[in-house]
């Protein structure tokens, strides 16, 4: 990753033009060529630096639902349980964390009712209780990474 790649990552986390030639517009602001920008974004995707080049949705505004869920997983069972949880397409992120509640993941569904179904399925498959902590109030969602 060179200085231009870092500039692209820093600047394009903030937005991307919606216009007929958006890469050309963004490239002008970045001081590079359109083709160079497209090639670099492809490379950043291929290398796994970017998870995606596209939209971040507001799931609730689309009629969907999101919750944060956690499990107390016995250490010896971690791989098996992680595989069972991750097999659900509604599971968006899954992290091992340092606590008795040691596996934390996000469940995002297209309808609010579907959350309870996914929770029930995971509980049935794993034999573990899910602690589900839906959001009540949002204070800040800036999540950006400067390089």
């Amino acid at each position: 990753m060179d200085a231009t790649d870092r500039l692209i990552v820093n600047e394009l986390q903030g937005g991307f033009p919606v216009a007929d030639r958006p890469f050309a517009e963004a490239a002008t602001l970045l001081g590079i060529d359109e083709d160079d920008l497209i090639e670099r974004v492809k490379r950043l995707c291929d290398h796994g630096t970017l998870s995606r080049f596209g939209p971040l949705y507001n799931a609730e505004r689309l009629g969907g639902a999101v919750t944060l869920a956690a499990l107390k997983v016995p250490a010896a069972d971690f791989q098996r349980i992680a595989a069972a949880v991750n097999a659900h397409p509604e599971v968006a992120h899954n992290y091992a964390r340092e606590d008795d509640l040691n596996m934390w993941f996000v469940i995002a569904t297209e309808t609010p009712e579907r959350i309870a179904e996914v929770i029930a399925d995971i509980e049935a498959e794993t034999g573990l209780r899910i602690y589900d902590m839906p959001k009540i109030e949002e204070f800040y969602v800036g999540l950006r990474f400067q390089l």
Binding site: I8, V9, L12, Q13, G14, G15, F16, V18, V41, L44, H47, G48, T49, L50, S51, R52, F53, G54, P55, L56, Y57, N58, R61, L62, V141, F145, L147
Partner: peptide
Amino acid sequence: EGGIIKRLGVIVRHHEL
């Protein structure tokens, strides 16, 4: 503009960075 798309652009894998 309506906030349905919160952001369009680069979505990073922060761990890799």
